[in-house]
Write a protein that binds this DNA or RNA. Structure first.
Length: 424
RNA sequence: GGAAAGGUGGCCGAGUGGUUUAAGGCGGCGGUCUUGAAAACCGUUGUGGCGCCUUGCGUCACCGUGAGUUCGAAUCUCACCCUUUCCGCCA
């Protein structure tokens, strides 16, 4: 959520940001008008409340019955007026919240301006150590079915399209990736958390997933339980409504969770293979920092994510997202894309973002620089480290052998329990 | 799912309709005293909104959440949430 003071003081900057993101800047005018109305009504109703508070105290002390009744009648009138004003105020505040909650975050000055994903900037390509294939690359669905480690048919039987079952070494490869990544994160200074995979609506709002992305979320029809679309959601709220000590910052966390997404917006896209499912596993990185430290932490987290791909020996590129493609809550985002020869694509396996105080304001996460000091909003950052299915695709397709087997990357062998995955 | 008890400030805890401000204690901060510290004593103390003559002052709101009764609600009514204990069910 943006600071209402920012919208008041620099409406043009907010309009420019909205235009750069390809959004309609019109809500800014609506917000400003409602804000004026809100303050006007608030002032009036508070004056009436002050009167009522004072007179009510007098009534308590009055002895004269007639005078007492007269004052009561008078205050009954005032009470009704307050009621009317408050009803109006509630309506305006609800409208205001609707509009401001739908505004995306301001952009970092370094985020390039551009209308769509074609204007993202590739910063560099990092060559991996895995040698290029000397034979035609097979896509992972062929490799997986050949080895009997990915079962698409039974996934569909159980749950419908976009679901699959991992068998034997396939399941172990993924489990190995998760365990290895979590350990790596711990070595990098992140604390591990095991989190709820279902959260309440308020938790999603505070992480800026609601109201905007309602269509992409699964939830219980009767109770207030929502499946997490990413571990970022519970991690954000870990310190919701808390005031942290400045000495405790930065705080960095890592967590493994499944992620659940309806992928309504992506209907028809990436239906083949395991690239885009309704359920996928991910190891997430998250940081709470002082505002002045968030720029440096962004670079640190990008490096931490890159270390994962370097560890696997894969070729990847670092992309900076432009204003038209960057996420709703992000000020600046790096995507890491790994090259996979079977699908012949650069696959997005990580997205590292500085969110500034956008989530902290919604989730009410503050810190004090010193005891007795003023509580200030923290900055938060998130990054995938990494998404499993796409990392699996890259491993299967990059390490495939001509005979259909797949060599297990060295760093994973202790976790997976074999050097090569062969057909049974 | 059923029953009972409970939810008050950073923490403990008093508070069954109105007495200037939620008593008192602990903790924190500042001070007095002291060579220094402790003790003792004195003062101070949360969050958010709005306004203003903006080091501050005024005002409103906040006692689990939301509605209601009342001139006036931490206090009374209703619904919900959470915690603890017991019963039932259960990986």
């Amino acid at each position: 959520m943006l600071d209402i003071n920012l919208i008041r003081k620099e409406p043009d900057a907010v309009r420019q940001m909205l235009a750069a993101r390809g959004n309609d800047p019109l809500p800014v005018d609506e917000i400003l008008a409602l804000d004026v109305q809100r303050r006007d009504i608030l002032t009036r109703s508070e004056q009436l409340r002050a009167t009522r508070n004072a007179v009510s105290k007098e009534i308590g002390r009055m002895k004269d019955e007639a005078e007492r009744e007269a004052k009561k009648a008078e205050m009954r009138q005032v009470g009704e007026e307050i009621g009317t004003l408050e009803a109006e105020l509630n309506k305006i505040e609800a409208q205001l919240l609707n509009l401001t909650a739908a505004l995306p975050n301001t952009l970092d000055a370094r985020t390039p301006i551009g209308p769509d994903e074609d204007h993202n900037v590739i910063l560099r390509v990092e060559e991996g150590v895995v040698p290029a294939l000397t034979f035609p690359a097979k896509p992972h669905w062929e490799i997986g079915e050949g080895l009997g480690i990915i079962d698409f048919e039974r996934g569909v039987k159980l749950s419908g399209s976009r679901f699959y079952v991992l068998n034997g070494w396939g399941a172990r490869l993924q489990r190995g990736l998760i365990a290895w990544m979590l350990n790596l994160r711990m070595e990098q200074g992140y604390e591990e958390r095991y989190l709820p995979f279902m959260v309440k609506e308020q938790t999603l709002f505070a992480a800026a997933q609601l109201p905007k992305f309602r269509d992409n979320l699964y939830h219980d029809a009767e109770e207030d339980y929502w499946m997490v679309p990413t571990a970022e959601v519970p991690l954000t709220n870990l310190h919701g409504d808390e005031i942290l000590s400045g000495d405790d910052l930065p705080r960095r966390y890592t967590a493994y969770t499944p992620c659940f997404r309806r992928e309504k917006m992506s209907a028809g896209k990436d239906v083949r293979g395991i690239k885009r499912g309704h359920q996928f596993d991910k190891v997430e990185m998250y940081a709470f920092v002082k505002p002045e430290d968030s720029d440096a932490m962004l670079e640190q987290m990008r490096e931490d994510a890159e270390a994962t791909l370097k560890g696997l020996g894969l070729t990847y590129r670092v992309k900076q997202l432009c204003s038209g493609d960057i996420g709703f809550g992000s000020r600046i985002t790096y995507d890491l894309e790994v090259y996979s020869p079977g699908v012949d694509e650069w696959l997005e396996v990580s997205s590292v973002s500085n969110v500034g105080d956008f989530q902290a304001r919604r989730a009410n996460i503050k810190f004090r620089r010193e005891k007795g000091g003023k509580a200030e909003l923290v900055h938060t950052l998130n990054g995938s480290g990494l998404g499993m299915p796409r990392t699996m695709i890259a491993v299967l397709e990059n390490f495939q052998q001509q005979d259909g087997s797949v060599v297990v990357p060295e760093v994973l062998r202790g976790f997976v329990g074999t050097d090569v995955i062969r057909k049974k």
